[in-house]
Design a protein around this nucleic acid. Structure first.
Lengths: 351, 351
DNA sequence: TTGTATGCGTTATCAC
DNA sequence: GTGATAACGCATACAA
């Protein structure tokens, strides 16, 4: 790739000449520094305007030995999730004069840690935001810490001491979702697990079990099925659960896409929702509202998660003291039309 | 925000000292330039390894007067669409030694053109990829051209001479989709329009009209409804169409989200799909497969669009000659279960 | 094949 | 308050 140099722009020197001042004064003005007489400031501002001068980031970064750059590292979560995270984090970074770089990756790549350290040194990153499941990788976090790169962990399994992290309460969320079904009289409740690489999968299942135990309900091991967060997995799990001799009266899927799969499996078998089967999802992604019937699901504050994480990271970079314990964000149950009271006996009838 | 300088890393000078060569030789090695004896190359490589040296992008960019940076400018299309574009474009850029910066924006912002020029000069961007509807904004394109910033337009309305663009064939796609319904015997076909800011909206409606005209079918103006690509708009449009005295036998929505809305409206009214109503979407986003019944829709090669556009931009930057006429990508009809033969008389029955 | 000297466009130091 | 001047870390003519 031959070098195609971009067109020349006005430099600080030309601005200084035009305004009849030194480059230092121009620098002061463009950086909003004090100690410049209003008159001079005006003159410089005018010269800047006339020449369309904009400080070059590369030069600025080199001289100041900082990049004003953060990176958002993720591995292909759902598009809806990802876009929310990107937007919230970008906005927050911008508000603090930083730029956010998006960095997709493969979270199972054994060289990921090294790659991130490399990226960080090449770009002189000032911090990194890790999106799950990357935020769960202890080796990555350790390598970044070792390389003295500040990072914020979004929804990690456990927050290492010193690392700044923002937590979700997937366990509590799953408990409440389960209680919603229990409150409707359901006892035979099926569960579709998420992908093992995600901490949320473990936590959601745990919350489900807790709520069941507390209610004195039995979790039939045959009603807990594997999944990986995809629609197809949900469909398979739904098929498996609905083809049992005695069907569950309700099914919780570990995310909305899988819940859509369960609903499809139910439609395939003419099982009426919510009359014969209640279905719950998780995450409250846009698809939840597009399904039929609209999906009861658990809303997780993804934007808030990203915003808080970014803010925390910026605080840390600025050297401010962080709260000792990471904050934990709150979920919210969104009841739509896919859940209803269980039939009297608490068990849905057979085919 | 106080400056928190990132930790010092090894510089090219230290590597040179350690390897016992000049910095020029180190530079040659890190840039894979010829004319270095294997022995020296080895020595330098070792020193690089031991010191964990990585050339700093900012310094490299400053000295070479180029950034190896492209920007992807978009305004909030659907998440699924966006993520596909991001991934394809990023990958293509990386393969050519470039980095891709994501730049969300408000496409109606009157200062967008200026903002992009600003961004470009600050970052010394080597090129910009415009995603619709930004690629439709003549002022933006003109401003970028005027500022001598190479840009690639994804699916613009019309490709300005000289600009590199990749086109979709929304008109043809809509024609084929309509023909699919006509082939099933439908004559009373409703249409839900997209957002006016998108060229695709116009083209899709035009294609629909063409196919109808060619088949000698009449387009009832009352069956062409407004929309804006959102689920809610689709639901409203669906309600409007289905509450008419004589219902359409089929409805084409200008994207999948709106088709989901139409389906929801049908479910609300106990209109069976596809027995009483056929529904088509557009784009073949993931939600199309999650709906019930699964949606017949028109697949547009979004990844290919982004990849081609990026490649074209890189060619242009490299100074290679471009094909005179922009390439036009091909759509593909995806028939699922939401469409079926029309009732005998070609008109669905009343409630 | 290898090295030297200069420049890239800013910020930062320290006199004035 | 303001301005010379030295970094910053690398690429690159040009010389050897």
């Amino acid at each position: 790739m031959p070098a195609r140099r971009t067109p020349r722009r006005a430099t600080i020197i030309e601005v200084a000449r035009r305004a009849g001042v030194s480059i230092k004064t121009v620098s002061r003005v463009t950086n909003d520094e004090p100690n410049v007489r209003p008159g001079l400031r005006q003159k410089v501002a005018r010269a800047v305007e006339e020449l369309g001068y904009r400080p070059l980031q590369a030069a600025r970064g080199l001289a100041a030995r900082r990049s004003r750059l953060l990176a958002l590292v993720y591995d292909n979560p759902s598009a809806a999730y990802l876009v929310r995270v990107q937007q919230a984090a970008s906005l927050c970074a911008q508000e603090h004069g930083m730029r956010l770089l998006y960095h997709p990756c493969d979270h199972r790549d054994p060289q990921l840690a090294a790659a991130l350290v490399l990226l960080s040194t090449q770009l002189r990153l000032e911090g990194i935001i890790l999106v799950p499941p990357v935020s769960l990788d202890a080796r990555v976090v350790a390598a970044l810490e070792a390389a003295d790169i500040p990072c914020a962990l979004l929804a990690p399994a456990a927050a290492p001491a010193g690392a700044c992290a923002v937590l979700l309460d997937d366990e509590g969320a799953a408990r409440e979702l389960t209680q919603h079904l229990l409150g409707l009289g359901h006892r035979r409740i099926g569960f579709v697990r998420g992908h093992d690489d995600h901490e949320a999968s473990r936590a959601r299942l745990a919350g489900f079990r807790q709520a069941m135990r507390r209610a004195g309900a039995v979790v039939d091991p045959g009603l807990v099925t594997a999944g990986d967060f995809t629609f197809e997995a949900g469909r398979r799990a739904g098929a498996q659960l609905l083809d049992r001799r005695v069907r569950p009266g309700a099914i919780i899927a570990s995310n909305d896409d899988m819940a859509a799969g369960v609903i499809a499996a139910a439609h395939d078998r003419n099982v009426a929702i919510p009359a014969q089967l209640s279905v719950c999802g998780f995450d409250d992604t846009p698809v939840a509202g597009m399904l039929w019937p609209p999906l009861t699901t658990m809303h997780q504050p993804i934007s808030e998660l990203a915003r808080s994480g970014t803010r925390l990271l910026l605080e840390r970079i600025a050297g401010n003291s962080l709260p000792r314990t990471p904050s934990r964000l709150h979920y919210e149950l969104v009841v739509r039309a896919s859940t209803a009271a269980a039939p009297r006996d608490g068990v849905a009838g057979g085919p």
